[in-house]
Amino acid sequence: MTFFNRISKSSASTNSRNGNRDFVLQNPEYIKDLAAFATDLTNKNHYKAVWIIEMLAETHPELLIPFIDSICGIAAQYKHESAIRGISRTILFLSTSKKISLTENQQEKFIETSLDRLIGVDKIAPKVFAMYALSHFAKTQDWIKEELQIIINKDFANQSAGYKAAAREVLRKINR
């Protein structure tokens, strides 16, 4: 079975996603193909590759360093709900990783994408991940604090309990 078939036939089950992640970790020569698969929006299964990218970003972000520019370039264009959730977590993990350093341009792209997710019509999870990523960037870029406060306060009353809990935590962090 080819690597692309392996991803295409995978499911959202934990075992399936973990199996693909472990396969890539044991065969790092496939990371380039994985990144190409995940950033190819014409491929109907791109979101399945995003799942693996997300898992790698969480535990082995250094493996993604050569592909961060590609991820930055495509992150805002995802439309599939599962890809949006996965790329939002990927941005959070890459932004907060102590193992890698994002360039100024990469940070700007991730900030822009996170702001778009936060104010957009996405589901709650991508909004929460965007909030957390932005609160991290706010440590070095003061203007983000004000933007976050405005957006969160504007949306707060109409959001879910999960969003509100995350929003309170983010507001506490940025107001320290």
Rank of each mutant, 00 (worst) to 15 (best):
M1G: 14
F3S: 11
F3W: 09
I7R: 12
I7K: 14
S8P: 01
S10P: 07
S10C: 11
S11C: 03
N18A: 02
N20L: 05
N20W: 01
F23D: 00
V24S: 00
V24M: 02
P28M: 06
E29Q: 13
Y30R: 06
Y30V: 08
I31M: 02
L34A: 00
A35M: 01
A35T: 05
A35Y: 02
A35L: 02
A36F: 04
A36E: 12
F37Y: 12
T39F: 02
D40F: 01
N43W: 04
N43A: 03
N45Y: 09
N45V: 02
N45S: 10
H46D: 04
H46R: 05
H46E: 03
Y47L: 15
A49R: 09
I53V: 15
E54M: 14
E54N: 13
E54V: 02
A57H: 03
H60G: 13
H60E: 07
E62N: 10
L63K: 09
I65L: 12
D69E: 10
S70A: 13
I71D: 01
I71G: 07
G73Q: 07
G73Y: 02
I74Y: 06
Q77F: 12
Q77K: 13
Y78V: 05
Y78L: 06
H80F: 11
H80K: 15
S82W: 12
R85T: 10
G86M: 06
I87K: 04
S88P: 05
T90N: 07
I91D: 03
L92H: 13
F93H: 13
S95F: 03
T96N: 10
E104I: 09
E104Y: 12
N105L: 07
Q106N: 09
E108T: 12
K109G: 07
F110W: 04
F110A: 10
F110D: 02
I111E: 02
T113L: 11
S114E: 04
L115S: 07
L115V: 08
D116G: 14
R117W: 06
G120H: 04
G120T: 00
A125R: 12
P126H: 06
P126C: 10
P126S: 12
F129D: 09
F129T: 05
F129H: 07
M131R: 15
Y132S: 14
L134G: 08
H136M: 10
A138F: 14
A138C: 11
K139S: 09
K139C: 05
Q141C: 07
D142S: 11
W143C: 13
K145E: 13
K145H: 11
L148N: 04
Q149M: 13
Q149V: 14
Q149P: 06
I152T: 05
D155N: 15
D155I: 00
F156D: 14
A157N: 13
N158S: 15
G162D: 01
Y163R: 01
A165K: 15
R172P: 05
N175H: 02
R176D: 14
